[in-house]
Amino acid sequence: MVNLIVDGKNISTTEGTMLLEAIRGAGISIPTLCAHEAVSRSGACRLCVVEIKKGNRTRIVTSCLYAAEEGLIVDTKSERVLNVRRLVMELLLARCPESEVLQKLSKELCVEPQARFIADSDKGKCVLCRSCVRVCEEVVGVSAIGLFSRGSHKTVGTPYNEKSDACIGCGACVYVCPTGHIEMFTTGDKRKIWGRTFKMKTCDTCGRYFAPVDQLKYISKKTGVPLKELAICMDCR
């Protein structure tokens, strides 16, 4: 166990726990956009920053990536922390003015849109948290989507924005996206995502469309379970 002080409160946590979990475990809320439990962490959104004090040195760290240490003094609401969080929210609001999630979060954090920034109209609701890219690589294992370009030109998509053969239409990316940027439409026997249309499979038992054929084929290939056994939806299993 390691003992630390968060906002003046003594807390203890198991070794190796990240500050984010340790702090939230103590009932103190920390906002995040890019820390999804299904994927590894990248520290991209910077909303979870906290100020830590070790000896005489204070610094700003991302709590989602910094492991709790014995004797650490953590301030989750210092002036510097709030300034970074406010800036990140202002910047994201200007990037994705349409995002309801960001609007709600900014209200919670008492941040107003910065009037001096001209809002973007070409970024959709994507905050580049990269959860979608990581889930596709780490959980699904197909790496159908990735990050392209650099700096403010950075985007998420399939290579060259062309239809991806690697994509299985599973929609895991949609599931982890914090802002609802990724579009997926499922109607009848068709599912549209990342510019491709997937054929849906009906459940052998209830007859309802429940998963793309490509996804079932991929699972069968990966797990060795015959395709036939996968032809029943979760509800009927």
């Binding site: 910077r46 800036l87 580049l128 700096g151 403010s152």
Partner: peptide, 22 residues
């Protein structure tokens, strides 16, 4: 720096761009 930012984290990617705009 706006061109050379890798674009991973919000303050650098968006903040440098906004400062540059101003």
């Amino acid at each position: 720096l706006q061109e050379e930012s890798c674009g991973k984290c919000v303050p650098c990617r968006e903040g440098v761009r906004r400062m540059n705009n101003i």
